[in-house]
Design a protein around this nucleic acid. Structure first.
Lengths: 340, 340
DNA sequence: ATAAAAAATACATACGTATGCATGCGCAAT
DNA sequence: ATTGCGCATGCATACGTATGTATTTTTTAT
């Protein structure tokens, strides 16, 4: 690197003091209009940039948000859930829009993640992203609260903890897609997704699913519910198990698009036609969903809005304001995979 | 936040000076074995974390890598090319493995990105990610070099500039997939992807494609080459144009998986069977590729290796060592979309 | 013209760490 | 006993910025 320019260099060139330079660059009203212009001119000319470390040290603000992405530990390390990847994209954009940098970190829900970023002053706040299906998750949240760390999280509300969450209405989403399939005159529904062991998100989707069935006087057959985590492979295996089961069904509601994608493959390999023989619907509306064959009907989670909400609420917390947990509605996206 | 602990607090508790604390925590050999243990114990007990801003200010090292992701400006803002998203994931992992944090930033190749992160001392080096199809791209690279910024980039080598690049052998990849399709007895090849206007990556793939055709005494019909950028929509439109063209073909080589996905949809909507009527192959091997119908044959770029190489080489540069541009081989992934 | 008020700038310091240099201490060699 | 040496630690300072306070300059009011 070339010898870095400091505010003293600018000050010398401009014939003013360092403090005036600092104020001029931050557009302080304390400095004369013309002086400011001259200082900014010289700064631009010398390609001067404020040293963020020094600045952050002085102000105790980093202008940075940390994003901690928790991945399903059962996953291979090279793959990332596309839904979260999409969230990552929207969060990056949302924070850029607010003038914040984004520090991204993948975590395995291991030891000390809860203490890392804000304590080291590298970030002003933390966004937690991932399915909330970890055993010691709440425990860590409590520690975060104790440390008075600024953070928000994606997912279903956590009862009993004063945590700001942004999530989508999984119950309603599950209800919505199921209802849509019911309208296509399907009677025997299978559900693919971890219910007993899985994430609260999946459970809510299942509950919505069941409620829709009940409201329409249809059976909830527990033989037709197969656990699966959110990978295509898991969906594939679950669907295979379902088919071997022997119980007849004409519709599959998957807890996520990835599961649905795997299920579609298994169903098609078994020789069934989608949607004529079996309707399949997903959840999330990941990019791939519109390019499956047939294109998948699903419940869309608005990741762009979600990213903005997460960032906005986090910044509210950082600036000392209150912020509220918020549930976003899902949107039914009708394509071809369920007959209309 | 609770009142932050500083190294002075630790020093007071341990009955030593602040400098000894600093040394002890960094495992300096200058400090006595037992003192070190005691200091580290107390630090852990008080949940003390080194203030990275102060530390970075003092050492002039941030322990952070910046990733600048350039997106196709023609894209809608909410979508990110899944291939680059996958790269982002592997780079995140690779830098974490090296103990570096990752600062992610989306750029529109706008004004001052080239000066931003390293100059502000927020990052020790920069990784440039994106297709190299921007008009003023080289110009900016030159500025980066002039500033003596540490950076590496993804993509084809840039002739004439001493820039460290990591890319894959697009020519060979294009050759490889085309050759494979030729072996399936296809004779009339279409190519979808921007050649005249597009990125150097696409151009190299096309060149490899053409070379394979020539080596097998097949025609290169320029009527069967349609420009497209790397989105499914663009691929869809390009394939539609191709079909309306009226020129017969029995194989489509797409410059990327996304283009191939769009093309597959267009072809299927037109009533053709893949691969019986028309073979389709892609490039990249994004996650979706294995879940199209039929599953897509493609040239895989090893994103995990790429991420590690990029990070390793960047860190070499940061530590003052030399680093070499490297070309990675592609791997042919045979699935169902081209008849075998 | 002079005092007071306002505006613009300079001075001084703190943020928390890392590190060169000085100091102190114990012990061996003279 | 004095010198010398190595080891462990403390002292002092610098990294570059932002900001409270002091100071100077300019303007306004009398």
């Amino acid at each position: 690197m070339k010898s870095k320019q400091t505010s003293f260099d600018i000050a010398y060139r401009a014939g003013v003091s360092q403090s005036t330079v600092s104020r001029a660059l931050r557009n302080s009203p304390l400095v004369n209009e013309e002086t400011r212009r001259r200082v900014q001119e010289i700064a631009a000319e010398l390609n001067y940039k404020v040293d963020k470390n020094a600045s952050s040290l002085r102000t105790q603000q980093s202008g940075t948000i940390a994003l901690l992405l928790f991945e399903d530990p059962t996953n291979d390390d090279s793959l990332i859930n596309p839904f979260f990847l999409s969230m990552l994209g929207s969060i990056t954009r949302a924070s850029a829009k607010k003038g914040y940098d984004l520090l991204v970190s993948f975590q395995q829900m291991s030891n000390d993640w809860h203490a890392d970023f804000e304590d080291t002053r590298k970030a002003d706040g933390i966004i937690l992203l991932g399915y909330g299906d970890y055993t010691d998750y709440e425990e860590k949240l409590v520690k975060l609260i104790e440390q008075e760390t600024h953070f928000v999280r994606w997912g279903a509300d956590v009862k009993g903890l004063s945590v700001v969450s942004v999530g989508c209405d999984n119950f309603h989403g599950g209800y919505q897609v199921t209802e849509h399939v019911i309208k296509q005159n399907r009677k025997n529904f299978a559900f693919l997704g971890g219910v007993t062991t899985g994430s609260p998100e999946f459970l809510d989707r299942y509950k919505g699913h069941c409620q829709a069935l009940k409201d329409n006087n249809l059976n909830v057959d527990s033989n037709l519910q197969i656990d699966a985590v959110s990978t295509d492979e898991s969906g594939y295996l679950a669907a295979k198990k379902l088919l071997e089961n022997g119980v007849a069904f004409d519709a599959i509601c998957a807890a996520s698009d990835l599961i649905a994608i795997g299920a579609m493959r298994a169903v098609q390999e078994a020789g069934y036609n989608i949607p004529n023989d079996i309707a399949v619907v997903g959840f999330d509306d990941i990019a791939t969903a519109s390019f499956t064959f047939p294109a998948m009907t699903t419940a869309k989670q608005d990741t762009v809005l979600a990213g903005e909400l997460l960032v906005d609420k986090l910044l509210q917390l950082v600036s000392g304001e209150e912020a509220q947990t918020q549930l976003m509605p899902t949107t039914l996206v009708v394509r071809k995979s369920c007959g209309s």
